[in-house]
Design a protein around this nucleic acid. Structure first.
Lengths: 158, 158
DNA sequence: GCTTGACCTGGAGTGCACTCCAGCCCGTAA
DNA sequence: TTACGGGCTGGAGTGCACTCCAGGTCAAGC
């Protein structure tokens, strides 16, 4: 399989494949007589997994580190497992956050729909209903640490 | 509230706040006699919502567009709702994808743990068990479109 | 009055993750 | 044999999203 075929099958561009090779994310393939890259079909599994790590927010540094460990073979199993466990936890957190936001969005869409219909909005949502320059709600918000991801329950800024 | 306080409360740096203002993500605040920015507490709700959009993958372009619509007041309600609905669907898709990956990671961690224990791996997982340069599995993979996000079921590249 | 710390502006610099390009080579089909 | 498509390399360019900095102003406390 040549680079163009791999590009088709993996969904990455040939440029990206060469770039990944350059930085060490994917192993250097064999070359044919003409100096062109020849790929083994197994590379697809690896690329797909990399893609999955990327799509779930693992940065290139960590992907690189993982790729590096992978080349070390079974001696790096524990380290790789540890990386995956860490990432797994991050993914689980992201799912929580996304789910939370899904609800916020649904609520907001709902609110907008009612406002579009000219409906009077429930007083409980008054601060949401005022659109652009709502009066400050009488409620103090404590500073929260961005690192921990701990933050007060979302409210609708309308 | 001055910019430093807002930075503390929002979790953004003063630089980022000024940057957001420059590009139009947050409205220009009033200034005090000394020319310093003075923020209304309501800005926090807006920043928090922006942060939520960002954390769920909405790019700066769209956040900008949304911010722009917001300044137009209630006449832009339908457009804003439409944007949120679109984003909502994207978030829902992401949740599916993340959940899928969570399982893949769990499986992989499990596999590694068993491999570390020197356990013989179930023949059904043989292609996973071969670590670095597994023989190609006898199974053709069709090229898939990256745009649609449609992709064949993940398998473990081990 | 002086120091200190927060704030101001404009602009340069950073890191990520590609993406594009010029100028070249190679193999095959017409 | 020549045209063409695909591939090669090294390096420049892009877009996002900040982040940092120099060189200045301003207000409050000692």
């Amino acid at each position: 399989m040549r680079i163009g075929d791999l590009a088709d099958k993996s969904g990455l561009s040939t440029d990206t494949l060469r770039y990944y090779e350059k930085i060490g994310l994917i192993p250097r393939p064999l070359r044919d007589a003409g100096g062109r890259r020849v790929y083994d079909r197994t590379i697809l599994r690896w690329i797909e997994f990399l893609d999955r790590l990327k799509a779930t927010g693992m940065g290139i540094r960590d992907r690189l580190r993982y790729a590096e460990l992978r080349t070390l073979g079974s001696s790096s199993l524990a380290d790789r497992r540890s990386m995956l466990e860490t990432h797994r936890d991050k993914v689980a957190e992201d799912i929580v956050r996304l789910t939370e936001t899904l609800h916020v969005l649904d609520d907001k869409v709902d609110l907008y729909r009612r406002m579009e219909a000219g409906e009077t909005v429930d007083p409980a949502f008054e601060s949401c209903a005022r659109t652009e320059h709502a009066a400050p709600p009488n409620r103090e918000k404590s500073p929260h640490d961005r690192r921990t991801g701990a933050r007060p329950r979302a409210d609708n800024e309308a």
